[in-house]
Design a protein around this nucleic acid. Sequence first.
DNA 1: TCAAAAGTGTTGAGCGTACACCCATGC
DNA 2: GCATGGGTGTACGCTCAACACTTTTGA
Lengths: 231, 231
Amino acid sequence: MSYTYKYPHYSVTVDCVVFALDMVEDELRILLIRRGEEPYKGMWALPGGFVQPDESLHCAAERELGEETGVRNIFLEQLYTYGEPDRDPRERVLSVAYYALVDINAYELHASSDADDAAWFSLSDLPELAFDHSEMIKCANGRLQGKIEYQPIGFELLPGKFTLRQLQKLYEIILNKTLDKRNFRKKILKMEILDELDEIEKDVTHRAARLYSFNKTRYEEKVKSGLYFEI
Amino acid sequence: MSYTYKYPHYSVTVDCVVFALDMVEDELRILLIRRGEEPYKGMWALPGGFVQPDESLHCAAERELGEETGVRNIFLEQLYTYGEPDRDPRERVLSVAYYALVDINAYELHASSDADDAAWFSLSDLPELAFDHSEMIKCANGRLQGKIEYQPIGFELLPGKFTLRQLQKLYEIILNKTLDKRNFRKKILKMEILDELDEIEKDVTHRAARLYSFNKTRYEEKVKSGLYFEI
DNA sequence: TCAAAAGTGTTGAGCGTACACCCATGC
DNA sequence: GCATGGGTGTACGCTCAACACTTTTGA
C-alpha cells in the first residue's frame, strides 16, 4: 500500500504514559514496553503506535494500549503533542501523548503486537527510554500532580473499594509530601462524595479499616451546586 | 511537489486562539481571519495553517499567526490536538491548537497570506466558524479560566504598565464574576510581584491611578521560595 | 499482652470576606 | 463644587494546621 499527496504529510503516533500505584513500595509506577522493532529495537519505551486512517486519536491510544499491554477501559486523557522535526530518526513523526491512570491489580500484563515485553517501572528508577519518551513522562507527572489536587481523578488509581488510608497514601505519593491523617479525613469526608460501605478490609494483620467507594454521581451533583474539589 | 510514503500519513495544521481584552466593552475578544481559500472560503476561522517540514509545531503557530495577522512575539501555548478522521472535508487533517494572549493595543492587524481579512470578535458574539474551530475556542476559554487563577499569565493581556483596576477588571471579565476591590488589592500586593512605578495613568477624566508592572524575575524567585500564586 | 494501625476532637492562627468612607483630579 | 473613580482599615467567621490519645484486632 502507498499513499501520495500534494503537500507534506507526516506520520502520527500516539504514546501512553500509564500510571499505577505501588502501595507496598510507596511509589508511582509507569508501564513500559520493550520495543520489538527498529528504531530503538530492544529499548524500553512507552506503549503506542501509528494512528490508523479511520480511528480518532483517542481510539488509537486505547487500541494501542490494549494491543501492547492488555490494559483496557481506563481513564485516558490527552496530554501534549510532540512534533519536533527530528524526534524520530526515520522521518518526521508527530506523537500525540496521552496519560492514563489504572488500578495496578486490575490487569495482567500481556505483551504482544510489536512489543516483546511489558512491565511496570518505578518512576524514580526508569531505564533509558526511546525517542523523547522521558520528556513525555516528566510532562505527564507534572500534569498528574497538578490535576489531582482539584479533580477527583485519584480514585482511578485505586480499586473500587478502598480505605481512607489508601486514598491518603495516594496523595502523599503523588504530591511527594506527608499529610495529616485527621485533617485529610475531615476534608475528604466533608465533601460527601464517598460512600461509606458496610465492609472492612481483609487479610490485614491489625485492625481492619472501613472501605469506601467514590460516588461519581453524587460528586457531579455537588459540583453543580458549587462544590470545589480540592485536596 | 509530491510526497510518497509506505504508511498512512496526514496533513497537520496549527490553529491559534488569540485572546485580547476589550476594557471598554468589558469583554474578551478573539482574533479571526476570513478564509481566502476552499474549503469554507469566505467564512471566519482561526488563524492557522499547514506545518512545514522543517519547523516545530510551536514555530509553525508563531509563523502562521505572524503571516496572517501581523501578531508576533506573544504568549503562546499548546492547547489540544484535534484529530477526528472527518474534521476536514478534503482529507484527514490533524490540527494542533494553540492559544495566545496579547495586549490588544500593541498590534495593528495585517490580513495577508491566505486570509482576506483579520478582525477581533467578541467571545460572546462569534460568527459561525469553519471546521471545529468553535470547539477549539470553547476549550481555550476553559483553559484560560482555569489557568489564570493559579499562573500569572493575565499580565500578557495588559500593556507593560497597568493599573490595579485594569488587572482586577481582567480577572472579572475572564472569570465572569465581580471581585471586591480592597480584597483584590491586598491579595495581589501581598505577593510582592508587582513593581509600583513612579507614574500614573494619563488622559483620564478623574483621579489618575498609579501604574504597576509585573516583575517576572521577582515572581520566579518567590515561587522558588514557596509562593503559590492564586487569585 | 503486645504490636500496628484505625479512628476521633480541640484549639489557635491566619486568611478570606464583607463592608464605608475620605481623597485627588478634571470638568 | 461636583462627579468619578482611587485608595485605604477593620472586624468577624471560617477554614486550615497542629497536635495526642483511645480503640480494635490479629498474632
